[in-house]
Amino acid sequence: MWHLGRLCAFDLETTGVDVEADRIVTAAALALGGGEDGEGHEWLADPGIDIPAEATTVHGITTERARADGGPAETVVDQVAGFLAVQVRDAVPVVGHNVPYDLTLLDRECRRYELPTLCDRIGETPLYVIDTRVLDTHALPYRRRPSKGQGARQLITLAQVYGLSWDEGAAHGCAYDALVAARVAYRIGQLAHMPRADWPEAIQTARRPRFHELGGLDLAELHSAQITWAADQAAGLEEHFRKTDPGAVVDRSWPLRPWVETITEGALA
């Protein structure tokens, strides 16, 4: 069962939301589960640029703190990619929430500093990913926003849906968010492999749950399924956006946006 093996929970906090141009501020990679002791690593980087106030509001790291306490960005990026590569080569899947953001930004950071990317480092070893946003959207496709200020697929919402604790003071720290994503993945895996009669009432009464489609898959099969599900979800989101913006485009790639040198090389300056 894919949720019972070793997992590598991964999350970044950054200078912004543009994967082609923004920088890593903090990173966490936590190897856990599978009957082995946990191994966790956290990094604070000096991104080499000012951290916008909007980003500091989210993760709490100021430019001054990053410059005083952060490691050189190139060193941090190399260490993060190196740790993930070790896990992937050991057949450990990378787990996170909205993983394409984190993996793509890490890829661009490696290219910025002319370091081997994660894909370079693992060679022919398959990269398996478990994305809680994709799994949750597929398993429970019909969910309204809990409130005007809280999205239906935010990590806090998933914690609430799957009966997990949530510490708002620790949230948006990359280690905490990575750990919660791993717990959500584990809970989804449990539900996928148990009889429907044993589900919590809130899950049983949800509209058209599809947890059974996640059960009985190995990691390769789950990864392949997520490629399809993520593309379908992006297409649906694009259709929704086009009701108000006819030119809206939602990227369908998963779990990593392809590198297009002619478009993105200027962002790496």
Score class of each variant (00 low, 15 high):
residue 198 D to P: 01
residue 198 D to H: 07
residue 198 D to V: 02
residue 199 W to Y: 10
residue 199 W to A: 00
residue 199 W to K: 01
residue 200 P to A: 12
residue 200 P to V: 09
residue 201 E to S: 08
residue 201 E to W: 05
residue 202 A to F: 03
residue 203 I to C: 01
residue 204 Q to R: 15
residue 206 A to I: 03
residue 207 R to F: 14
residue 207 R to Y: 13
residue 207 R to A: 11
residue 208 R to L: 08
residue 208 R to K: 15
residue 209 P to D: 03
residue 210 R to G: 01
residue 211 F to V: 00
residue 211 F to W: 03
residue 212 H to D: 14
residue 212 H to L: 09
residue 212 H to G: 07
residue 213 E to P: 03
residue 213 E to D: 15
residue 213 E to L: 10
residue 214 L to E: 02
residue 215 G to K: 04
residue 215 G to M: 00
residue 216 G to M: 02
residue 217 L to F: 06
residue 217 L to C: 09
residue 217 L to Q: 02
residue 219 L to M: 13
residue 220 A to T: 05
residue 221 E to A: 15
residue 221 E to N: 06
residue 221 E to D: 09
residue 222 L to P: 03
residue 222 L to V: 01
residue 222 L to Y: 01
residue 223 H to S: 03
residue 223 H to C: 00
residue 224 S to I: 00
residue 224 S to R: 14
residue 225 A to H: 07
residue 225 A to E: 09
residue 226 Q to G: 03
residue 227 I to G: 06
residue 227 I to M: 13
residue 228 T to G: 12
residue 229 W to C: 02
residue 229 W to Q: 04
residue 230 A to N: 08
residue 230 A to G: 10
residue 232 D to E: 15
residue 234 A to E: 12
residue 235 A to C: 07
residue 236 G to T: 09
residue 236 G to W: 05
residue 236 G to C: 05
residue 237 L to I: 04
residue 238 E to A: 14
residue 238 E to Y: 02
residue 239 E to H: 14
residue 239 E to R: 13
residue 240 H to Y: 13
residue 240 H to V: 12
residue 241 F to M: 15
residue 241 F to W: 15
residue 241 F to K: 15
residue 243 K to N: 09
residue 243 K to F: 01
residue 243 K to D: 08
residue 243 K to G: 14
residue 243 K to C: 06
residue 244 T to D: 13
residue 244 T to Y: 09
residue 245 D to K: 12
residue 245 D to A: 08
residue 245 D to W: 07
residue 246 P to E: 09
residue 247 G to L: 15
residue 249 V to C: 06
residue 249 V to W: 08
residue 249 V to T: 08
residue 250 V to M: 13
residue 251 D to Y: 07
residue 251 D to G: 11
residue 251 D to N: 15
residue 251 D to S: 14
residue 252 R to N: 06
residue 252 R to C: 07
residue 253 S to V: 01
residue 254 W to I: 04
residue 254 W to K: 03
residue 255 P to H: 06
residue 255 P to W: 02
residue 255 P to Q: 07
residue 256 L to F: 05
residue 256 L to R: 15
residue 257 R to D: 10
residue 258 P to D: 15
residue 258 P to W: 03
residue 258 P to K: 06
residue 259 W to N: 06
residue 259 W to Y: 10
residue 259 W to P: 01
